[in-house]
Write a protein that binds this DNA or RNA. Structure first.
Length: 751
DNA sequence: TCGCTTTGTCATGAT
DNA sequence: AAATCATGACAAAGC
């Protein structure tokens, strides 16, 4: 796999790119087995839904989909895998081997289009034109000569009305500015995105190569070359349009291909372009808007009229009569197509039917129900005619146009889009940036140990113990790191500690011994401030970890020695009067209880009083002959000391709780953003599939011939998916009826 | 001086 | 039951 990938990426890929540069499109994916990931993904990485997990580094992974070594996000990883599998599953119904894409053939030889297509003879068959066509989004607009055609292409993507080929650079810039403004206003329209598409074109071409190749119709692809597609700029619906391209060569090769363009439209989604980045909110928004517009316009009669309106010559009418002499297309297994009144039971691609003519046409094999299950699950028994051949088509054929057929996909998308709109709006309102979300994601993935790291506790413990500046025993080793934060904390921190050795809460025996020897009592209430100061600093949460474990060791107190070293003047400067000053400082530093203890001449430190276990504490008391007042004070000191620590712990817990809640909120926001991205991706995939189904429908329908070898009129017949995966050719009237039924069902359900 | 934050303390209830 | 812990409330201190 690795070798193959390497080969692909370094060999075929380069070759493909090279060919693309000279205008020749090669469908490399076609030569790859389905087991291999789409070339597009190999080259450009997985779809945007997965890129967030940093799968770009595919070469480092076994199968091309691995986990980024530096940001292992299993959740996203598996999510990405799941999504990938889902998307691929959805793709299965698509015809992997065939797709009629011959747009390049139609290109005006003059076409300066990106310098490609040196000659119309590209004939490199179907593959040649695929990419360009497939990428309506791609900005094929560059060439003026091609403009007429490029419009069509772009319209395919429901992108936007074609931009005038006469646009000057200023115009383009202006359009771009206006477009951006619209984007800012929430009116994402690709309409104005001229320059943008130009930029993306190259990339999109490559992407589409990979994406479309699965869909290309092998061999037969040339048929589509003769077709000219127009897509409504807003709806994204493709529609046939006559164009003057010279398709003689194609028609010769495939006589039946001279059919009207209307039947076989290349409906590749503009979204197929793999350039879409999950973080490209703008692009997503554009896609969203395009989908919305497409959905909205699918019901738009006027659009359909335009789409299917035919010139006086009525291509449609001629479409089905153009090839009277053309032999029945053997590729289409419509042996029963002559059944004008065929019921639903009639299945074009039912298993039994498949065994017959279908076998002869490899191009139709992909439609075999084996893959149709997924399609059925999505479309159900859908009247494809309603989907792809709006009633207006009938009008063009001078037939009475029936009521508009509901678009199951449209309905599906409608709901999804509504949700999406709301979600996107919400996301936008909240100013939530997917990029930021991903960043947060990384951050939180890495700082999960916020309150778990207790490694600091020991050091802080020792540091807090060394409260006495003069005492060389315990405080000398106080961490220097704490000095930086503590030195600047408070004025009180600058106070020096006298030899009396006021100590903070500590159970350290060493310190206790020292204190006992010196008769020093009390603790440093100010210590906690230092820790808190840094603790409050979001960027310095290092203090937090051991705060969790404050428990009985009170390590949150910063090392007083650190303060000493930072604030105390050089030893030599304190020679005279230093002791007095230190004594003053000490008095100030001592807590009330310490003062009381000293006043009462308590023979041991407050630290011991507070921190010793009950048994030891009682034992200690028993060693001394203490008065009631002393005992009472000692008990109060112990009580207050413990309560003090408890209060500190309580406050820390509160703060931790708040922080955790804050993190949870951010996590939820991150998940929300991720889900939004996924949804956008699914919608995008859905639109792609819809368009592909549409193209397939048109392809199949266009090949159908009755017993006389004549094509069926789309105004009279329609293809319909049956529940079992088969495809039926039924009269339009019947299809309309069924469409109405289906239209009612969802409504009933909602009720 | 006022407002805010931090900290210590008390009271109370829970463990 | 005593000791300890947790926490709300209050006030003092500091900024």
């Amino acid at each position: 796999m690795l070798s193959l990938k390497k080969y692909l990426t370094e060999g075929l890929l380069q070759f493909t790119i090279l060919l693309s540069l000279i205008g020749v499109r090669v469908d490399v994916d076609t030569y790859l087995t389905s087991q291999l990931p789409p070339l597009r993904e190999i080259i450009l990485g997985p779809s945007s839904a997965y890129t967030q997990t940093q799968f770009h580094n595919l070469r480092n992974t076994l199968d091309g989909y691995g986990v980024h070594p530096k940001s292992i996000d299993l959740d996203n990883y598996f999510t990405a895998r799941r999504l990938l599998s889902q998307v691929r599953a959805l793709d299965r119904f698509q015809v992997p081997t065939t797709e009629v894409n011959a747009w390049l053939v139609h290109r005006d030889p003059e076409g300066s289009v990106s310098g490609s297509q040196p000659s119309s003879g590209l004939t490199l068959e179907s593959s040649s034109g695929l990419q360009d066509v497939t990428g309506p989004d791609n900005g094929v607009r560059e060439s003026e000569t091609e403009q007429g055609f490029s419009e069509d292409l772009e319209d395919l993507g429901a992108v936007a009305p074609p931009v005038s080929g006469d646009l000057t650079k200023e115009d383009i810039d202006l359009i771009d500015i206006l477009w951006r403004q619209d984007i800012d206003l929430g009116a994402g329209r690709e309409i104005f995105d001229y320059s943008h598409r130009q930029k993306e074109q190259d990339v999109d071409k490559d992407l589409q190569d990979g994406a479309e190749q699965d869909d290309t119709w092998s061999g037969e692809g040339a048929e589509a070359l003769a077709r000219n597609l127009l897509v409504d700029g807003e709806t994204g619906e493709s529609f046939p349009a006559q164009f003057p391209a010279d398709i003689s060569s194609i028609t010769e090769a495939v006589p039946s291909e001279s059919e009207p363009p209307g039947l076989q439209n290349n409906l590749l989604s503009p979204l197929l372009t793999g350039t879409d980045s999950p973080f490209d909110l703008e692009q997503q928004w554009q896609d969203l808007m395009s989908i919305m517009e497409m959905q909205a316009m699918e019901v738009n009669t006027s659009t359909n009229e335009i789409l299917y309106s035919a010139p006086p010559g009525d291509p449609l009418s001629t479409n089905y009569s153009l090839a009277p002499n053309t032999p029945i297309n053997q590729n289409v297994s419509l042996h029963q197509a002559s059944l004008g009144g065929c019921s639903q039971d009639f299945s074009l691609f039912s298993p039994e039917v498949e065994s017959l003519p279908v076998a002869s046409s490899s191009t139709l094999l992909p439609l075999v129900p084996s893959n149709s299950t997924s399609l059925n699950s999505t479309f159900g028994s859908t009247n494809l005619a309603g989907l792809f051949f709006p009633p207006q088509l009938n009008g063009t054929a001078n037939d009475t146009a029936g009521p508009e057929l509901p678009d199951p996909l449209g309905g599906l998308l409608d709901e999804a889009m509504l949700d999406e709109i709301s979600l996107m709006d919400l996301a936008i309102e909240e100013g939530f940036n997917p990029v930021q979300a991903s960043q947060l994601e990384e951050e939180f993935d890495s700082d999960s140990g916020l309150s778990l790291d207790s490694s600091h506790s020991p050091s802080s413990l020792s540091s807090s113990e060394g409260s006495s500046s003069s005492s060389s025993s315990s405080s000398s080793s106080s961490s220097s790191s704490s000095s930086s934060s503590s030195s600047s904390s408070s004025s009180s921190a600058s106070s020096s500690f006298s030899e009396e050795g006021a100590v903070g809460y500590s159970s350290d025996s060493e310190t206790l011994d020292l204190e006992e020897a010196e008769g020093a009592v009390g603790y440093q209430p100010e210590y906690s401030k230092f820790c808190r100061m840094s603790y409050q600093d979001p960027s310095q949460l290092s203090c937090l970890p051991y705060l969790e474990h404050v428990g009985h060791n009170h390590t949150y107190n910063m090392a007083p020695s650190a303060l000493d070293s930072a604030d105390l003047p050089p030893p030599g400067a304190l020679k005279k009067g230093s002791k007095e000053k230190q004594a003053d400082f000490l008095d100030k530093q001592m807590s009330r209880d310490e003062h009381r203890a000293r006043a009462m001449k308590i023979p041991f430190t407050n630290d011991k009083i507070i921190n010793l276990p009950v048994e030891e504490f009682n034992e200690l008391l028993s060693k001394y002959q203490l008065s009631e007042a002393q005992l009472s004070l000692i008990r109060d000191i112990r009580r207050r000391g413990k309560n003090k620590m408890a209060a500190q712990n309580c406050r820390k817990r509160k703060l931790d709780t708040i922080l955790n809640l804050e993190r949870d909120v951010e996590d939820l926001q991150r998940d929300k953003a991720r889900l939004l991205r996924e949804k956008v991706e699914f919608l995008r995939s859905l639109r792609q599939m819809k368009q592909k189904v549409q193209s397939l429908y048109q392809e199949v329908f266009g090949r159908l011939r009755d017993e006389n070898g004549r094509p069926y009129s789309p105004s009279q017949y329609a293809l319909q998916y049956a529940g079992d995966g088969s495809v039926l050719l039924i009269p339009r009237t019947l299809a309309d009826q069924q469409a109405r039924r289906q239209e009612r069902k969802p409504k009933d359900r909602r009720k």
